[in-house]
Design a protein around this nucleic acid. Structure first.
Lengths: 238, 238
DNA sequence: TTAAATTACTTGTAAATACAAGTTCAATAA
DNA sequence: TTATTGAACTTGTATTTACAAGTAATTTAA
Protein backbone atom coordinates (compact mmCIF):
# COMPACT_ATOMS: atom_id res chain seq x y z
CA UNK A 1 0.00 0.00 0.00
CA UNK A 2 2.74 2.40 0.88
CA UNK A 3 6.06 1.98 -0.87
CA UNK A 4 7.76 0.27 2.07
CA UNK A 5 11.40 0.93 1.42
CA UNK A 6 13.19 -1.73 3.42
CA UNK A 7 14.30 -0.46 6.81
CA UNK A 8 18.05 0.05 7.18
CA UNK A 9 19.76 -2.23 9.66
CA UNK A 10 20.26 0.35 12.38
CA UNK A 11 16.58 1.16 12.17
CA UNK A 12 15.59 -2.50 12.47
CA UNK A 13 17.75 -2.92 15.56
CA UNK A 14 16.28 0.27 17.01
CA UNK A 15 12.74 -0.96 16.46
CA UNK A 16 13.49 -4.33 18.03
CA UNK A 17 15.18 -2.89 21.11
CA UNK A 18 12.53 -0.21 21.46
CA UNK A 19 9.71 -2.74 21.40
CA UNK A 20 11.61 -4.91 23.87
CA UNK A 21 11.69 -1.97 26.23
CA UNK A 22 8.09 -0.85 25.71
CA UNK A 23 6.82 -4.42 26.04
CA UNK A 24 8.78 -5.14 29.17
CA UNK A 25 11.35 -7.64 27.92
CA UNK A 26 13.91 -5.17 29.23
CA UNK A 27 12.71 -3.45 32.36
CA UNK A 28 13.75 -0.23 34.02
CA UNK A 29 17.15 -0.58 35.64
CA UNK A 30 18.17 -3.53 33.50
CA UNK A 31 21.56 -3.50 31.88
CA UNK A 32 21.24 -3.83 28.13
CA UNK A 33 23.46 -6.42 26.43
CA UNK A 34 26.81 -4.88 25.58
CA UNK A 35 27.34 -3.39 22.15
CA UNK A 36 29.53 -6.30 21.11
CA UNK A 37 26.93 -8.81 22.25
CA UNK A 38 24.26 -6.95 20.29
CA UNK A 39 26.59 -7.08 17.28
CA UNK A 40 26.74 -10.85 17.30
CA UNK A 41 23.04 -11.26 18.04
CA UNK A 42 21.90 -8.98 15.23
CA UNK A 43 24.77 -9.80 12.89
CA UNK A 44 25.86 -6.21 12.31
CA UNK A 45 28.90 -4.17 13.27
CA UNK A 46 29.34 -1.80 16.16
CA UNK A 47 28.71 1.48 14.33
CA UNK A 48 25.33 0.10 13.27
CA UNK A 49 24.46 -0.96 16.80
CA UNK A 50 25.66 2.38 18.12
CA UNK A 51 23.42 4.26 15.73
CA UNK A 52 20.43 2.38 17.08
CA UNK A 53 21.52 3.01 20.67
CA UNK A 54 22.17 6.69 19.86
CA UNK A 55 18.53 7.10 18.98
CA UNK A 56 17.27 5.15 21.97
CA UNK A 57 19.43 7.29 24.26
CA UNK A 58 18.34 10.45 22.51
CA UNK A 59 14.70 9.58 23.03
CA UNK A 60 15.28 8.68 26.64
CA UNK A 61 14.70 4.93 26.53
CA UNK A 62 18.21 4.22 27.79
CA UNK A 63 21.09 5.98 29.49
CA UNK A 64 24.62 5.09 28.53
CA UNK A 65 27.57 4.98 30.89
CA UNK A 66 31.09 4.73 29.62
CA UNK A 67 32.74 1.68 31.13
CA UNK A 68 29.49 0.28 32.51
CA UNK A 69 26.94 -0.18 29.81
CA UNK A 70 23.52 1.00 28.73
CA UNK A 71 20.86 1.10 31.39
CA UNK A 72 17.18 0.86 30.52
CA UNK A 73 15.08 3.82 31.63
CA UNK A 74 11.75 2.52 30.37
CA UNK A 75 9.20 4.41 28.31
CA UNK A 76 10.06 8.11 28.33
CA UNK A 77 7.38 9.87 30.31
CA UNK A 78 8.64 13.27 29.33
CA UNK A 79 6.70 13.18 26.15
CA UNK A 80 3.49 13.94 27.93
CA UNK A 81 0.41 15.67 26.70
CA UNK A 82 2.35 18.87 26.12
CA UNK A 83 4.84 17.50 23.72
CA UNK A 84 3.69 14.36 22.02
CA UNK A 85 1.10 11.69 22.19
CA UNK A 86 -2.33 11.58 23.68
CA UNK A 87 -3.77 11.97 27.11
CA UNK A 88 -3.47 8.26 27.76
CA UNK A 89 0.30 8.25 27.87
CA UNK A 90 0.38 11.53 29.71
CA UNK A 91 -1.46 10.25 32.73
CA UNK A 92 -0.48 6.64 32.81
CA UNK A 93 -3.33 4.39 31.93
CA UNK A 94 -4.00 3.23 35.45
CA UNK A 95 -6.37 5.90 36.65
CA UNK A 96 -7.78 6.88 33.30
CA UNK A 97 -11.29 5.94 32.21
CA UNK A 98 -12.61 7.00 28.84
CA UNK A 99 -16.23 7.70 28.00
CA UNK A 100 -17.08 7.97 24.33
CA UNK A 101 -19.40 10.94 23.91
CA UNK A 102 -19.60 10.75 20.13
CA UNK A 103 -18.56 7.47 18.51
CA UNK A 104 -16.13 7.80 15.60
CA UNK A 105 -18.18 8.82 12.57
CA UNK A 106 -17.43 10.11 9.11
CA UNK A 107 -18.06 13.81 8.66
CA UNK A 108 -17.05 16.69 6.48
CA UNK A 109 -14.38 18.94 7.90
CA UNK A 110 -16.11 21.88 9.47
CA UNK A 111 -12.99 23.54 10.71
CA UNK A 112 -9.83 22.45 12.47
CA UNK A 113 -9.52 24.67 15.53
CA UNK A 114 -7.93 27.62 13.71
CA UNK A 115 -5.44 25.43 11.88
CA UNK A 116 -5.72 25.81 8.10
CA UNK A 117 -6.61 22.64 6.17
CA UNK A 118 -4.99 21.51 2.95
CA UNK A 119 -6.99 20.89 -0.24
CA UNK A 120 -6.49 17.15 0.09
CA UNK A 121 -7.69 17.12 3.66
CA UNK A 122 -10.89 18.97 2.78
CA UNK A 123 -11.66 16.55 -0.06
CA UNK A 124 -11.24 13.32 1.88
CA UNK A 125 -13.49 14.18 4.79
CA UNK A 126 -12.74 13.29 8.36
CA UNK A 127 -13.43 10.87 11.15
CA UNK A 128 -14.83 12.74 14.12
CA UNK A 129 -15.08 11.69 17.74
CA UNK A 130 -15.58 13.20 21.16
CA UNK A 131 -14.39 11.67 24.40
CA UNK A 132 -14.53 12.47 28.08
CA UNK A 133 -11.67 11.25 30.27
CA UNK A 134 -12.07 10.57 33.96
CA UNK A 135 -9.07 10.48 36.27
CA UNK A 136 -9.82 8.62 39.46
CA UNK A 137 -13.50 8.99 38.74
CA UNK A 138 -13.43 12.74 38.15
CA UNK A 139 -13.92 14.23 34.68
CA UNK A 140 -10.69 16.03 33.77
CA UNK A 141 -10.29 15.97 29.99
CA UNK A 142 -12.81 16.56 27.26
CA UNK A 143 -11.40 16.11 23.81
CA UNK A 144 -12.52 16.40 20.21
CA UNK A 145 -10.46 14.47 17.67
CA UNK A 146 -10.52 14.72 13.89
CA UNK A 147 -8.64 12.32 11.61
CA UNK A 148 -8.46 12.28 7.79
CA UNK A 149 -10.69 9.55 6.35
CA UNK A 150 -8.18 7.77 4.13
CA UNK A 151 -7.59 4.04 3.92
CA UNK A 152 -8.30 3.29 7.56
CA UNK A 153 -10.24 0.09 7.17
CA UNK A 154 -12.47 -0.88 10.08
CA UNK A 155 -11.29 2.21 11.91
CA UNK A 156 -14.65 3.52 13.05
CA UNK A 157 -15.54 0.18 14.55
CA UNK A 158 -12.47 -0.08 16.76
CA UNK A 159 -12.62 0.31 20.48
CA UNK A 160 -11.09 3.53 21.72
CA UNK A 161 -12.25 3.21 25.29
CA UNK A 162 -9.14 1.69 26.74
CA UNK A 163 -6.41 1.86 24.15
CA UNK A 164 -4.61 4.96 23.08
CA UNK A 165 -5.58 6.29 19.68
CA UNK A 166 -1.94 6.65 18.81
CA UNK A 167 -1.14 3.09 19.78
CA UNK A 168 -3.85 1.88 17.41
CA UNK A 169 -2.61 4.07 14.59
CA UNK A 170 0.94 2.85 15.11
CA UNK A 171 0.09 -0.80 15.44
CA UNK A 172 -2.56 -1.34 12.79
CA UNK A 173 -1.87 1.42 10.29
CA UNK A 174 1.84 2.09 10.74
CA UNK A 175 1.15 5.75 11.35
CA UNK A 176 3.58 7.43 13.72
CA UNK A 177 3.57 10.86 15.24
CA UNK A 178 6.38 12.97 13.88
CA UNK A 179 5.61 16.30 15.54
CA UNK A 180 3.07 19.03 15.50
CA UNK A 181 2.00 22.40 16.77
CA UNK A 182 -0.26 23.49 19.55
CA UNK A 183 -1.92 26.53 21.01
CA UNK A 184 -2.70 26.86 24.67
CA UNK A 185 -5.08 29.24 26.33
CA UNK A 186 -7.11 29.74 29.46
CA UNK A 187 -10.85 30.16 29.02
CA UNK A 188 -13.98 30.23 31.11
CA UNK A 189 -16.12 27.11 30.99
CA UNK A 190 -19.18 27.38 28.76
CA UNK A 191 -22.45 25.56 29.45
CA UNK A 192 -21.34 22.33 27.83
CA UNK A 193 -18.06 22.19 29.73
CA UNK A 194 -19.79 23.11 32.99
CA UNK A 195 -21.94 20.04 32.47
CA UNK A 196 -19.12 17.71 31.58
CA UNK A 197 -16.82 18.82 34.35
CA UNK A 198 -19.62 19.37 36.86
CA UNK A 199 -18.39 22.83 37.84
CA UNK A 200 -20.00 26.21 38.47
CA UNK A 201 -20.03 29.49 36.57
CA UNK A 202 -16.80 31.29 35.83
CA UNK A 203 -14.71 28.18 36.19
CA UNK A 204 -11.32 28.46 34.42
CA UNK A 205 -10.48 25.75 31.91
CA UNK A 206 -7.32 25.06 30.00
CA UNK A 207 -7.80 24.72 26.26
CA UNK A 208 -5.33 22.98 23.99
CA UNK A 209 -5.64 23.05 20.21
CA UNK A 210 -3.30 20.70 18.42
CA UNK A 211 -2.26 19.77 14.95
CA UNK A 212 -0.37 16.49 15.04
CA UNK A 213 1.78 15.54 12.07
CA UNK A 214 2.58 11.93 11.16
CA UNK A 215 5.02 9.99 9.03
CA UNK A 216 2.38 9.89 6.28
CA UNK A 217 2.61 13.14 4.33
CA UNK A 218 -0.60 15.09 4.52
CA UNK A 219 -2.02 12.88 7.26
CA UNK A 220 -2.54 15.23 10.19
CA UNK A 221 -4.60 14.69 13.28
CA UNK A 222 -6.40 17.65 14.78
CA UNK A 223 -7.48 17.62 18.37
CA UNK A 224 -8.95 20.01 20.84
CA UNK A 225 -8.58 19.21 24.51
CA UNK A 226 -10.24 20.96 27.43
CA UNK A 227 -8.80 20.34 30.88
CA UNK A 228 -10.18 21.00 34.29
CA UNK A 229 -6.96 21.68 36.18
CA UNK A 230 -8.56 22.00 39.62
CA UNK A 231 -7.05 18.83 40.96
CA UNK A 232 -4.76 17.66 38.21
CA UNK A 233 -2.40 20.15 36.63
CA UNK A 234 -1.08 19.28 33.23
CA UNK A 235 2.36 17.90 33.80
CA UNK A 236 5.19 17.35 31.40
CA UNK A 237 8.94 17.23 31.10
CA UNK A 238 11.13 18.47 28.29
CA UNK B 1 36.45 26.32 37.26
CA UNK B 2 34.72 23.30 35.89
CA UNK B 3 36.89 20.43 34.69
CA UNK B 4 36.66 21.27 31.02
CA UNK B 5 37.39 18.00 29.31
CA UNK B 6 38.38 18.92 25.79
CA UNK B 7 35.48 18.79 23.40
CA UNK B 8 35.54 15.91 20.90
CA UNK B 9 35.87 16.93 17.27
CA UNK B 10 32.27 16.24 16.28
CA UNK B 11 31.17 18.41 19.16
CA UNK B 12 33.47 21.26 18.13
CA UNK B 13 32.13 21.16 14.58
CA UNK B 14 28.60 21.10 15.93
CA UNK B 15 29.23 24.15 18.11
CA UNK B 16 30.81 26.07 15.23
CA UNK B 17 28.03 25.31 12.77
CA UNK B 18 25.37 25.95 15.38
CA UNK B 19 26.75 29.37 16.21
CA UNK B 20 27.08 30.17 12.53
CA UNK B 21 23.38 29.48 12.18
CA UNK B 22 22.26 31.31 15.33
CA UNK B 23 24.44 34.31 14.50
CA UNK B 24 23.27 34.55 10.92
CA UNK B 25 26.38 33.51 9.01
CA UNK B 26 24.16 30.83 7.52
CA UNK B 27 20.63 32.07 7.02
CA UNK B 28 17.35 30.25 6.61
CA UNK B 29 17.14 28.60 3.21
CA UNK B 30 20.88 28.58 2.69
CA UNK B 31 22.51 25.39 1.50
CA UNK B 32 25.17 24.28 3.94
CA UNK B 33 28.58 23.34 2.50
CA UNK B 34 28.58 19.71 1.46
CA UNK B 35 29.83 17.10 3.89
CA UNK B 36 33.04 16.66 1.93
CA UNK B 37 33.68 20.39 1.90
CA UNK B 38 33.15 20.53 5.65
CA UNK B 39 35.62 17.66 5.98
CA UNK B 40 38.42 19.60 4.32
CA UNK B 41 37.57 22.82 6.13
CA UNK B 42 37.53 21.26 9.61
CA UNK B 43 40.16 18.64 8.84
CA UNK B 44 38.09 15.67 9.96
CA UNK B 45 36.49 12.74 8.18
CA UNK B 46 32.95 12.31 7.01
CA UNK B 47 31.58 10.24 9.91
CA UNK B 48 32.73 12.98 12.25
CA UNK B 49 31.04 15.68 10.18
CA UNK B 50 27.95 13.54 9.89
CA UNK B 51 27.73 13.18 13.66
CA UNK B 52 27.71 16.94 14.01
CA UNK B 53 25.09 17.27 11.28
CA UNK B 54 23.04 14.48 12.86
CA UNK B 55 22.68 16.55 15.97
CA UNK B 56 21.93 19.77 14.12
CA UNK B 57 19.25 17.97 12.12
CA UNK B 58 17.87 16.34 15.24
CA UNK B 59 17.53 19.70 16.93
CA UNK B 60 15.92 21.25 13.89
CA UNK B 61 18.64 23.66 12.82
CA UNK B 62 18.96 22.00 9.43
CA UNK B 63 17.04 19.61 7.19
CA UNK B 64 18.95 17.13 5.11
CA UNK B 65 18.00 15.98 1.65
CA UNK B 66 19.65 13.02 0.03
CA UNK B 67 21.19 14.09 -3.24
CA UNK B 68 20.72 17.80 -2.60
CA UNK B 69 22.39 18.80 0.62
CA UNK B 70 21.63 20.23 4.03
CA UNK B 71 19.34 23.22 4.14
CA UNK B 72 19.45 25.67 7.02
CA UNK B 73 16.17 26.07 8.89
CA UNK B 74 17.39 28.72 11.33
CA UNK B 75 16.89 28.72 15.06
CA UNK B 76 14.30 26.10 15.95
CA UNK B 77 11.22 27.94 17.08
CA UNK B 78 9.55 24.75 18.11
CA UNK B 79 11.28 24.78 21.42
CA UNK B 80 9.06 27.56 22.58
CA UNK B 81 7.85 28.44 26.00
CA UNK B 82 6.25 25.06 26.39
CA UNK B 83 9.31 22.99 25.87
CA UNK B 84 12.48 24.88 26.53
CA UNK B 85 13.81 28.33 27.05
CA UNK B 86 12.21 31.54 28.16
CA UNK B 87 9.48 33.74 26.87
CA UNK B 88 11.92 35.74 24.79
CA UNK B 89 12.66 32.96 22.36
CA UNK B 90 9.04 31.86 22.33
CA UNK B 91 7.72 35.11 20.98
CA UNK B 92 10.57 36.38 18.91
CA UNK B 93 12.18 39.39 20.42
CA UNK B 94 10.68 41.90 18.05
CA UNK B 95 7.42 42.67 19.75
CA UNK B 96 8.52 41.89 23.27
CA UNK B 97 9.18 44.59 25.84
CA UNK B 98 10.23 43.70 29.35
CA UNK B 99 9.49 45.68 32.47
CA UNK B 100 11.43 44.73 35.56
CA UNK B 101 9.00 44.69 38.46
CA UNK B 102 11.49 43.46 41.05
CA UNK B 103 15.18 43.83 40.21
CA UNK B 104 17.28 40.70 40.75
CA UNK B 105 18.02 40.50 44.47
CA UNK B 106 19.38 37.89 46.80
CA UNK B 107 16.79 36.20 48.96
CA UNK B 108 16.24 33.02 50.89
CA UNK B 109 14.23 30.37 49.13
CA UNK B 110 10.67 30.69 50.31
CA UNK B 111 9.32 27.95 48.14
CA UNK B 112 9.68 26.86 44.57
CA UNK B 113 6.16 26.63 43.20
CA UNK B 114 5.43 23.14 44.55
CA UNK B 115 8.77 21.76 43.33
CA UNK B 116 10.82 20.27 46.20
CA UNK B 117 14.20 21.92 46.81
CA UNK B 118 17.43 20.06 47.50
CA UNK B 119 19.49 20.62 50.65
CA UNK B 120 22.18 22.41 48.67
CA UNK B 121 19.69 24.73 47.05
CA UNK B 122 18.19 25.76 50.36
CA UNK B 123 21.62 26.56 51.81
CA UNK B 124 22.88 28.74 48.98
CA UNK B 125 19.96 31.08 48.79
CA UNK B 126 18.51 32.39 45.57
CA UNK B 127 18.39 35.30 43.18
CA UNK B 128 14.83 36.49 42.83
CA UNK B 129 13.25 38.65 40.16
CA UNK B 130 9.86 39.55 38.78
CA UNK B 131 9.19 40.76 35.26
CA UNK B 132 6.24 41.86 33.19
CA UNK B 133 6.37 41.23 29.46
CA UNK B 134 4.45 43.34 26.98
CA UNK B 135 3.71 42.06 23.50
CA UNK B 136 2.89 44.87 21.09
CA UNK B 137 2.31 47.14 24.06
CA UNK B 138 -0.10 44.82 25.88
CA UNK B 139 0.89 43.03 29.08
CA UNK B 140 0.80 39.31 28.35
CA UNK B 141 3.32 37.56 30.61
CA UNK B 142 4.06 38.06 34.27
CA UNK B 143 6.90 35.90 35.49
CA UNK B 144 8.73 35.17 38.73
CA UNK B 145 12.20 33.68 38.37
CA UNK B 146 14.41 32.13 41.03
CA UNK B 147 18.02 31.11 40.43
CA UNK B 148 20.52 29.52 42.84
CA UNK B 149 22.99 32.09 44.17
CA UNK B 150 26.24 30.34 43.36
CA UNK B 151 29.29 31.81 41.62
CA UNK B 152 27.39 34.16 39.38
CA UNK B 153 29.62 37.20 39.62
CA UNK B 154 28.01 40.52 38.68
CA UNK B 155 24.81 38.67 37.94
CA UNK B 156 22.40 40.90 39.82
CA UNK B 157 23.76 43.96 38.06
CA UNK B 158 23.18 42.67 34.55
CA UNK B 159 20.50 44.04 32.31
CA UNK B 160 17.63 41.63 31.79
CA UNK B 161 15.38 44.05 30.01
CA UNK B 162 16.25 43.13 26.46
CA UNK B 163 18.33 40.01 26.53
CA UNK B 164 17.07 36.57 27.31
CA UNK B 165 18.03 35.26 30.72
CA UNK B 166 19.08 32.00 29.14
CA UNK B 167 21.28 33.70 26.58
CA UNK B 168 23.11 35.46 29.41
CA UNK B 169 23.53 32.24 31.36
CA UNK B 170 24.84 30.46 28.29
CA UNK B 171 27.18 33.20 27.16
CA UNK B 172 28.71 34.44 30.41
CA UNK B 173 28.39 31.46 32.73
CA UNK B 174 28.37 28.50 30.34
CA UNK B 175 25.13 27.28 31.80
CA UNK B 176 22.89 25.48 29.35
CA UNK B 177 19.37 24.21 29.70
CA UNK B 178 19.23 20.43 29.66
CA UNK B 179 15.57 19.86 30.33
CA UNK B 180 13.01 20.27 33.02
CA UNK B 181 9.49 19.74 34.18
CA UNK B 182 6.43 21.93 34.17
CA UNK B 183 2.91 22.10 35.45
CA UNK B 184 0.18 23.94 33.62
CA UNK B 185 -3.14 25.08 34.93
CA UNK B 186 -5.93 27.54 34.30
CA UNK B 187 -6.76 29.92 37.13
CA UNK B 188 -8.80 33.03 37.74
CA UNK B 189 -6.83 36.27 37.97
CA UNK B 190 -6.28 37.53 41.49
CA UNK B 191 -6.06 41.21 42.39
CA UNK B 192 -2.40 41.51 41.52
CA UNK B 193 -2.79 39.87 38.13
CA UNK B 194 -5.91 41.93 37.39
CA UNK B 195 -3.74 45.00 37.90
CA UNK B 196 -0.84 43.82 35.82
CA UNK B 197 -2.94 42.58 32.93
CA UNK B 198 -5.53 45.34 33.24
CA UNK B 199 -8.47 42.93 33.15
CA UNK B 200 -11.73 42.55 35.05
CA UNK B 201 -12.97 40.06 37.60
CA UNK B 202 -13.18 36.39 36.77
CA UNK B 203 -10.63 36.66 33.99
CA UNK B 204 -9.01 33.30 33.15
CA UNK B 205 -5.22 33.15 33.25
CA UNK B 206 -2.84 30.43 32.26
CA UNK B 207 -0.32 29.51 34.93
CA UNK B 208 2.94 27.72 34.21
CA UNK B 209 5.21 26.43 36.97
CA UNK B 210 8.57 25.25 35.77
CA UNK B 211 11.70 23.63 37.07
CA UNK B 212 14.48 24.04 34.53
CA UNK B 213 17.51 21.79 34.78
CA UNK B 214 20.93 22.78 33.47
CA UNK B 215 24.25 21.18 32.60
CA UNK B 216 25.52 22.14 36.06
CA UNK B 217 24.39 19.45 38.50
CA UNK B 218 22.14 20.88 41.16
CA UNK B 219 21.73 24.20 39.37
CA UNK B 220 18.04 24.44 38.65
CA UNK B 221 16.04 27.49 37.67
CA UNK B 222 12.51 27.80 38.97
CA UNK B 223 10.04 30.01 37.24
CA UNK B 224 6.38 30.78 37.45
CA UNK B 225 4.73 32.39 34.46
CA UNK B 226 1.24 33.82 34.24
CA UNK B 227 -0.17 34.42 30.77
CA UNK B 228 -3.12 36.42 29.61
CA UNK B 229 -4.16 34.39 26.59
CA UNK B 230 -6.89 36.75 25.43
CA UNK B 231 -5.06 37.87 22.34
CA UNK B 232 -1.96 35.73 22.28
CA UNK B 233 -2.33 32.01 22.80
CA UNK B 234 0.75 30.15 23.90
CA UNK B 235 2.14 28.55 20.80
CA UNK B 236 4.64 25.80 20.43
CA UNK B 237 5.69 22.93 18.19
CA UNK B 238 7.00 19.53 19.18
C1' DT C 1 13.21 21.13 -30.36
C1' DT C 2 12.38 17.58 -27.26
C1' DA C 3 13.05 13.56 -24.57
C1' DA C 4 16.09 10.20 -22.73
C1' DA C 5 20.54 8.92 -20.99
C1' DT C 6 24.77 10.03 -18.87
C1' DT C 7 27.55 12.17 -15.48
C1' DA C 8 28.90 14.39 -11.48
C1' DC C 9 27.52 15.80 -7.68
C1' DT C 10 24.89 15.17 -3.07
C1' DT C 11 23.54 12.40 1.36
C1' DG C 12 22.58 7.41 3.30
C1' DT C 13 24.24 3.02 4.87
C1' DA C 14 27.66 -0.23 6.40
C1' DA C 15 31.87 -2.52 7.46
C1' DA C 16 36.57 -3.08 9.44
C1' DT C 17 39.90 -1.22 12.43
C1' DA C 18 42.20 1.29 16.09
C1' DC C 19 42.79 3.43 20.22
C1' DA C 20 41.07 6.32 24.32
C1' DA C 21 38.77 6.32 28.62
C1' DG C 22 35.78 4.79 32.37
C1' DT C 23 34.38 0.66 35.41
C1' DT C 24 34.79 -3.53 37.81
C1' DC C 25 36.91 -7.13 39.97
C1' DA C 26 40.53 -10.24 40.92
C1' DA C 27 45.36 -10.82 41.82
C1' DT C 28 49.22 -8.91 44.09
C1' DA C 29 52.14 -6.41 47.36
C1' DA C 30 52.40 -3.84 51.53
C1' DT D 1 43.91 -7.17 56.45
C1' DT D 2 44.33 -3.35 53.48
C1' DA D 3 45.70 -0.75 49.68
C1' DT D 4 47.44 -0.98 44.95
C1' DT D 5 48.03 -2.80 40.57
C1' DG D 6 46.54 -4.81 36.50
C1' DA D 7 43.64 -7.29 33.37
C1' DA D 8 39.32 -7.60 31.19
C1' DC D 9 35.52 -5.78 30.38
C1' DT D 10 32.46 -1.58 29.04
C1' DT D 11 31.32 2.73 25.94
C1' DG D 12 33.52 6.98 23.32
C1' DT D 13 35.97 8.81 19.43
C1' DA D 14 37.93 8.70 14.90
C1' DT D 15 39.66 7.06 10.48
C1' DT D 16 39.36 4.61 6.17
C1' DT D 17 36.91 2.46 2.64
C1' DA D 18 33.03 1.10 -0.22
C1' DC D 19 28.83 1.26 -2.30
C1' DA D 20 23.73 2.64 -2.59
C1' DA D 21 20.49 6.11 -3.75
C1' DG D 22 18.60 10.63 -4.69
C1' DT D 23 19.24 15.18 -7.43
C1' DA D 24 20.43 18.26 -11.04
C1' DA D 25 22.64 19.73 -14.93
C1' DT D 26 24.71 18.39 -19.14
C1' DT D 27 25.11 15.64 -23.05
C1' DT D 28 23.28 12.77 -26.43
C1' DA D 29 19.88 10.71 -29.48
C1' DA D 30 15.43 10.96 -31.45
Amino acid sequence: MYPDTPLPQHRKVYEILRSHITEGVFKEGDLLPSENELCTVHKVTRPTIRKALDRLANEGYIVRHQGKGSIVKGIPKGVGILSMTGTTSAIGQDNLVTQIIIQPEIRNWSEAFTFPLSQLEVETGCIYMERLRLVNGKPVFYDITMIPNVNLSRFTSRNFANKSLFDILRKYYHIEVRGGEQKLLAIVADERLKNFFNVGSGHPVLQLNRKIETNRPGFNIYSQVFCNTDEYALYGTF
